[in-house]
Write a protein that binds this DNA or RNA. Structure first.
Length: 287
DNA sequence: ACGGATGTTCGCGC
DNA sequence: CGCGCGAACATCCG
């Protein structure tokens, strides 16, 4: 489930429980998870006996800095998460790596689909990491105002939703946050980015900031990352994501869906009209 | 039983 | 160069 808010929640969770602690031993099970090609040091060698000196988040990446020249870079993919357990408890299924701390504490990286990645890097190579280096501004770390967003959107006619999900444009926005931000801004996901008005761009910037804050707040009381699909007792905290065929919370029109950049996008056909002209008339009608 | 799922990267073709 | 499309990674759920 991880997009920016979930990864931020994970960072806060790990800071509370792992920061300044000593990793007595570390192990990673399947080699697929690890991409240590840039260093000669193994996962176990790099981490064992080290203290975690800082935990950072950039976009959807987690960075665990160690009291050595190495860092652990973690990307959760679609289904990755870090969980806290006692070392005497059995490993959850799909455990891919474990960081053992003192007092029988262990942090396990669990990733069902294994689309996430763990990498051991030299600190000096972090800035050269291709995916990290190409990230656009992070809305939480760098802020995202309308002027900045306008510059990022001006040069392309790609659908706005595809652009918002492009990590090189803005870091941390995935399918859910892009869907939610566009609903909040009342902008159709397929509108060409460069066709958007100044007011619409302002609404999108505000929508991004608002949906991230809302999602972060929804996770605040959770101790670990909860997958919506795992927990049917947790109610859907989103305005349109996962609400196809439900009534729009603003106008009661049924929420619809359209595929943009190969991802399904929930939207309200009435609040988020496909053309700018239709947007104007919808606003005049008071939507 | 098949299609879809919160992510990213890469190759292909226009 | 821009961009859409599909595949690949691996697994589960409805």
């Amino acid at each position: 489930m991880p997009e920016l808010p979930e990864v931020e929640h994970q960072a806060r969770f790990l800071r509370r429980l792992v920061l300044n602690r000593k990793i007595t031993r570390a192990e990673a099970s399947p080699t697929q998870v690890l991409q240590g090609k840039t260093t000669s040091v193994s996962f176990t060698e790099a981490l064992s006996g080290r203290h975690v000196s800082a935990i950072e988040r950039v976009g959807k990446f987690l960075i665990l800095r160690l009291d050595s020249s190495f860092v652990l870079l973690s990307h959760l993919g679609m289904t990755g998460r870090w969980v806290a357990r006692s070392s005497t408890d059995p490993s959850p299924s799909h455990t891919r790596a474990s960081l053992f701390l003192e007092e029988e504490r262990v942090f396990r990286y669990v990733d069902r689909r294994m689309l996430g990645r763990l990498e051991i890097l030299h600190e000096a190579d972090l800035a050269k990491h291709k995916s990290l280096a190409s990230l656009g501004p992070d809305p939480l770390l760098d802020g995202l105002d309308a002027a900045r967003l306008a510059t990022l959107l001006a040069t392309t006619r790609r659908p706005i939703k595809a652009v918002l999900m492009d990590a090189k444009i803005i870091a941390g926005i995935g399918n859910i946050q892009a869907t939610e931000a566009l609903f909040r801004a009342r902008v159709h996901p397929q509108r060409p980015a460069s066709s958007l008005s100044k007011d619409e761009i302002t609404a999108i910037a505000d929508g991004i900031v608002a949906t991230i804050a809302h999602t972060l707040a929804a996770h605040a009381h959770e101790d670990e990352i909860v997958y919506l699909s795992d927990r049917r007792d947790v109610k859907n905290p989103f305005l349109v994501y996962g609400r196809v065929n439900e009534a729009c919370s603003r106008c009661r029109t049924l929420i619809s869906t359209v595929v943009v950049a190969m991802r399904s996008s929930a939207f309200c056909p009435s609040c988020q009209p496909a053309t700018r002209a239709a947007t104007r008339s919808a606003l005049q009608r008071g939507r």
